[in-house]
Design a protein around this nucleic acid. Structure first.
Lengths: 211, 211
DNA sequence: CAGAACTTTCAGTAAATTCTGAAATTAAGA
DNA sequence: TCTTAATTTCAGAATTTACTGAAAGTTCTG
């Protein structure tokens, strides 16, 4: 089988991008190929099209399966396993984000938390810990947020993203609404520097905002 | 000079994480070291503390400067150049996002756009193009959004992030507001599948929502 | 159950990358 | 200016990662 120049360009580009992302070129190319392919492909066709050894494709597919980016299916009348990516790009992005969180963010937060528990002996260590605290809080804030919005329906998420920076006007609106208690006045006062993730416990108060 | 066990653990962890991210271990460690250091460090101290050759440190610093993650300064009475990361973690995250966009996202979008301009000859190519279109639109949507919210003030951004998934209630509120015209009714009707980034031209309509 | 079709594993090799020390370059001070 | 300190460059060594072919393993079919 032959790859059209169009698909080939796509596949090669994602091979390169893969290497910049710690994913290797082979894996990037396999994933890209499956993404644009109109039908699920068996491993030997992938090997033929991309000119890799069969065993290399096998390893690449294993890797992609561990990322939950390809699924395996059987076509009637063919004993070989066929592979494809999810049809929905959103699903791919969600999965990627989840896996990166699981593999990279969570372990990092855990290391940071451990180090923050240690008793700092010197001024240097106290300084280091305060930097780690800042980093920890920011990563946690961003991660929590992304975990949260990923649970939204695709159309809600789209709407939110399309809003872009204009979302800030909704925030202003919210802050002005008289029916809310003291919460946002306090927050506004202390908004200067430090992150205040601990304020998250005030969720319940917020909960009442809309029916 | 000696590194405390606390900082060492931090530095080693970010060295490992670096490799998973296409940034090499050395560069990750240097960056982490500068991040927790209470004062700017000259290259030879970095080399001593991390046990790298002086030349390796030089290359690493050059790389970090190209990412705009370290800045150079001169201390009075010392001829050597001293390096440090920005004090503000938010600034680091913003810079990282900008650079990744510039180096990875923009070229990818550009490749996708080029390929979408080509005339598809076969059914296979038409399918590939439609997949590329989906990917292009989603990447663009997410990128535009992140570009946009990064311009917000840190405290606004914090507030937005703390809101998490509850932001959807603001959207609902917005959709219910009587003073808005036909825009969101239309959007809601067609929200099913396709991305509609072209709707971005409706910004001006939105602009009037709040003073 | 035997044999064919297909897949995975793994040891060894090829390729890419990271890192170093020596030499070249640049910049500061006398 | 010359001297010396500091930095960069770069060819090649060391290390890591990617890839292959042969062999072992698995699953299906007659």
């Amino acid at each position: 089988m032959e790859l059209s120049p169009l698909s080939e360009a796509f596949v090669l580009h994602f091979g390169e991008m893969g290497s910049r992302w710690g994913i290797n070129r082979t894996v990037g190319q396999i994933c890209a190929l499956l993404y644009v392919s109109p039908r699920p492909l068996p491993a030997d066709e992938i090997a033929e099209v991309l000119r890799f050894s069969r065993s290399n494709v096998s390893m690449g597919l294993k890797e992609l399966q561990s990322w939950r980016l390809v699924r395996l299916q059987h076509l009637p009348g063919d004993r070989r396993e066929h592979f494809s990516t999810p049809d929905d790009v959103w699903q791919i992005v969600r999965t990627l984000a989840e896996e990166r969180r699981r593999r990279e963010i969570d372990p990092t937060l855990s290391v940071l938390r451990d180090l923050l528990m240690e008793k700092a002996a010197t001024a240097s260590d106290r300084h280091a810990q305060s930097r780690m605290r800042e980093m920890h809080d920011l990563i946690e804030l961003i991660t929590r947020w992304s975990e949260d919005v990923q649970k939204l329906e695709t159309d809600q998420l789209t709407q939110l993203l399309q809003l872009g920076g204009k979302v800030v006007r909704l925030l202003e609106l919210k802050n002005r609404l008289p029916l809310l208690g003291s919460e946002q006045r306090r927050r506004r006062a202390g908004a200067g520097g430090t992150l205040a993730t601990s304020e998250n416990q005030e969720q319940d108060e917020d909960q009442e905002m809309l029916p």
